[in-house]
Design a protein around this nucleic acid. Structure first.
Lengths: 337, 337
DNA sequence: CTGAAAGCGCTTACAG
DNA sequence: CTGAAAGCGCTTACAG
């Protein structure tokens, strides 16, 4: 419980003014002699600048607020880890805000964020009311939506190319010769969910095929599993299911196998995200990769440039990822036939 | 980019002194009339106190530093989410620090943490050098080690009862009639790893049994999988493996199945943690539950009481969890026989 | 390059 | 209860 060492004490010991100490630590110009004296004094005293005081004056907290709703989807821990690392490299840190209920809790949380003088906000898979987006804009706090677009909000976003991804997954199913293709979609209240579905519908339409069924899986394991069971219990069953994300796809695979069906012999399953678990043998899930590292890079770049250049333009960045063909779906016909 | 509203502006509009405004927002006493005027003025101006300024003066940042090494083990995302929620409820927030390499990176990071004037530190599954622990102590910043004890460090820790857990897992294997029981241990450099192994050895000794083998899995999927392959490729094979955590156990199951063995017919597998995935049908892993919610509660309680009461005593809290018997291991003999 | 001084936006004794 | 004033630990023009 020793009192913290201040720049004044360092100044005294070094025999210079307090301003000199400040200059040395804030990277302003100072003579080599001064730098030396100050550094030495600081070392013996164990001095480190008070980040809070600096932040208050400069108006730069070097803190980024991260809003997340849930972490159970394996996609997020990975993204969070990479985001934190990338930001730390640039001298920023992440202040975490978990929003209890994904729908409206965000608003309170963002006020809290702004109170903490964050320099920017990353909202992962949560939507913001437009009034809230406006509040942030007015306060000059850039927001980047991660893995969740929100057209018309004026907010920047970084997502994968969801429509294209949905198309690719569906096309792979069509190319494999499937004729009764169902889609357990991501939450219809989210743009990612809608766009992946859109891709599905477009690919089907292009092939002059009628979707076997489209149901909303709500990005929820239980709902997805139940939907799968329902789909598979009729007389006429789908022979392929494109699922809105991997997290649900695992539940779908569990449910389908639990009914005694073989994957992919009885039904092909394709997911979306390519989380680590997708490649583990127990699931071996064919899926559309969301390139987390590139999405993170884009997010950090976008956010930091908005912070530093006070760039007023919202950017909508879509990053394409490949389809990863694995064992949960039949391979395309004609290929290696 | 409007300039932030300050308490002075509110004071002017409300017709009171700046101190009065401050009192209203810091919860100090003020007459109802004043409170009313101030609140009204604040509302019309959109005023919110600057948390940074407050933190600097009071010395209370209301920020807890969380140090994590990796998030791929499914145990951590869940813990993080709960920690964040619990802390938010108490008015604290989590500033995240990911440490690049688990071993020595911690030291730099903690200095960074202290610069940010965090009121407390939670270190999840990372060890701290004793000199570092001392630094924190001297600065009056309480540290709680989460899921990783460090005896002699003088640091508080919250873990599950690892020795007992290791015993339980092993006993379950013994009770099931296994005779060639191996242990793929957690990292030997960590107390959790050593204690679970200790529990394993104690249970074996009590039963007058000799371990089939003990290898260090380093809490690493690849190493664990390779160890499993080695164990299972000899002429004399183990008929049961207790794995140091679920994260490795999944890899072990994948590897064992990949060699054509049946679980649990050919070999029983038991893990440790009971992460969500353990209960999914694809693995259906018997495991020792680490009660995340109670561990989080204990962590938050310990940390906050250390912060507020400047409680100088390090607490070592161990929380017991049950063995969850699932399909990856043979059930105990005699039971339902 | 350097020091004295003002000021960031608050909290908190101190008188009244 | 309330206002004037000092001060938290810094940064940053401003002169020299």
């Amino acid at each position: 419980m020793t009192r913290r060492v201040t720049s004044l004490q360092v100044a005294e010991l070094a025999g210079v003014s307090q301003s000199a100490v400040s200059r040395v630590f804030s990277g302003a110009s100072a003579s080599p002699a001064t730098v030396d004296k100050v550094k030495k004094a600081a070392e013996t005293l164990g001095y480190r600048p008070n980040v809070l005081a600096r932040a208050m004056i400069t108006g730069k907290s070097r803190i980024i607020g991260l809003v997340v709703a849930y972490l159970d989807n394996q996609f997020y821990p990975e993204a969070l880890e990479r985001l934190s690392n990338a930001l730390q490299e640039k001298g920023y840190h992440i202040l975490i805000f978990t929003v209890p209920n994904a729908t409206d809790g965000v608003d309170k949380v963002v006020q809290d964020l702004m109170d903490h003088q964050v320099e920017g906000i990353i909202a992962a898979s949560v939507s913001m009311s437009s009034s809230l987006a406006e509040t942030c804009a007015r306060a000059g706090i850039p927001v980047v939506l991660f893995n969740r677009g929100q057209p018309g909000s004026g907010l920047s976003s970084v997502t994968s190319a969801n429509i294209k991804g949905g198309r690719m997954a569906t096309q792979a199913l069509i190319d494999a010769g499937h004729s009764r293709i169902a889609h357990i979609a991501g939450w219809d209240g989210s743009l990612t969910g809608r766009e992946r579905r859109e891709g599905f519908e477009a690919a089907m339409a292009d092939a002059d095929m009628i979707p076997f069924a489209i149901v909303d899986g709500m990005y929820n394991r239980d709902i997805a599993a139940q939907s799968a069971r329902q789909l598979m219990s009729g007389d006429l069953r789908p022979d392929a299911i494109f699922v809105g994300n991997d997290h649900m796809a695992f539940a779908v695979m569990d449910a389908v196998r639990g009914m005694g069906f073989q994957i992919p012999q009885d039904v092909s399953i394709i997911g979306y995200d390519d989380v680590p678990l997708a490649s583990w043998p127990a699931y071996d899930l064919t899926t559309v990769r969301q390139p987390v590292n590139r999405m993170v890079e884009a997010t950090v770049t976008t956010l930091l440039s908005a912070i530093n250049d006070t760039d007023p333009y919202a950017e909508t960045i879509e990053i394409e990822g490949p389809l990863i063909q694995r064992g949960s779906s039949r391979p395309p016909k004609g290929q290696m036939q």
